[in-house]
């Protein structure tokens, strides 16, 4: 099934982009998915395919919560439920919190999960060190990661939308970070753009020690950066991810273009990944001497 493949070997990039077997620009072939999608509808389409093929029994997605734009982890077991959860919310949904419950209350044997790079790290740590995740490690069948520079709490997004962009949360149609700005699109067509300088201080502090931009530990990771509008950049990383992706391509789920042939391409992805990791690595180092001969914890050195 080696369709649209550029190399069969795992490319070991210099860290920033992680290991991957394949990188393409892609979008869903399904118009209904594209209509609601943040970019290329990759996550919704790939989960839909995996659900329909029985590769997964259900997927932990960021579904609609109690308030507008407040996501909560939601276990989608039907295509309709998947569709209701599409789009980026730009605030925290503790996806991994349902990973054990999905195998218990929901009885899933084959779990899909979508999450940010740190959530993919949590999933993989949970598989190698399942301290409290009995019988979960081998039930994770498709982990899709999304590119992430940083995340916001719900209150931060509310602050940005209501105070800075002067819009009601329920009046927002779409939010987006791109071209150096935070964009808020209203239901009635109005558009507000905020410079990222404004949004920075509202970022979740825990994001500032994160050393992963493109979800290096996912089976498949995706995000808008690197691809033209309406398309997504996709990294296929693991053997499992490669297997599912190849099947989805063979089934005609996606339109793809070689990443080398799209603008701005991998160069921009690498640039942003390097920026994020360099900046956060510096933060990790500065934390070590945060006080007077006293520092803050570094999780990468151990649990102490």
């Amino acid at each position: 099934m080696p369709l649209m493949r550029h190399s069969n070997e795992v490319r070991e990039m210099a860290g920033e982009l992680g290991k991957y077997k394949l990188c393409v620009s892609a979008r869903s072939a399904d118009k209904a998915i594209l209509k609601k999608a943040q970019d290329g509808g990759i996550v919704t389409q790939l989960f839909k395919f995996a659900l329909e093929e029985g590769i997964i029994d259900g997927a932990i997605v960021a579904g609609p919560g109690d308030e507008p734009w407040r996501p909560r982890p939601f276990i989608a077991t039907t295509v309709e439920e998947l569709m209701s959860s599409s789009g980026t919310k730009y605030n925290i949904s503790p996806q991994v919190s349902w990973i054990k419950e999905a195998t218990r209350s929901y009885g899933l044997d084959k779990i899909g999960i979508v999450g940010t790079p740190c959530q993919m790290q949590a999933v993989r740590k949970g598989q190698l060190y399942p301290v409290g995740l009995r019988d979960v490690p081998d039930k994770i069948k498709l982990a899709i990661g999304i590119f992430c520079m940083e995340n916001f709490s719900y209150q931060s997004v509310k602050q940005l939308v209501e105070d800075h962009a002067a819009m009601k949360m329920e009046a927002v149609k779409k939010m987006e970070i791109g071209k150096g700005k935070f964009w808020v699109y209203g239901q009635r067509g109005q558009v507000v753009q905020l410079p990222l300088k404004v949004t920075h201080k509202y970022e979740q502090p825990g994001c500032h020690v994160c050393l992963d931009y493109v979800a290096n530990l996912a089976d498949v990771s995706t995000g808008s950066v690197g691809s033209p509008d309406g398309w997504s950049t996709v990294f296929v990383r693991t053997r499992n991810g490669d297997d599912i992706w190849s099947k989805a391509i063979a089934a005609g789920c996606f339109e793809t273009k070689p990443i080398e042939q799209v603008k701005p391409g991998l160069e921009l992805v690498t640039k942003l990944a390097t920026e994020k990791i360099t900046k956060n690595q510096k933060t990790v180092e500065e934390r070590a001497k945060f006080g007077v001969n006293k520092g803050l914890r570094n999780p990468y050195l151990g649990p102490k």
């Binding site: 925290i92 996806q95 990973i99 959530q119 740590k125 979740q204 825990g206 020690v209 914890r297 999780p299």
Partner: peptide
């Protein structure tokens, strides 16, 4: 310590 990023692992692990 300013390290939490809200993944939810703790809630999943709690017996």
């Amino acid at each position: 310590q300013g390290l939490c990023m809200g993944c939810g692992s703790c809630a999943a692990a709690c017996p």
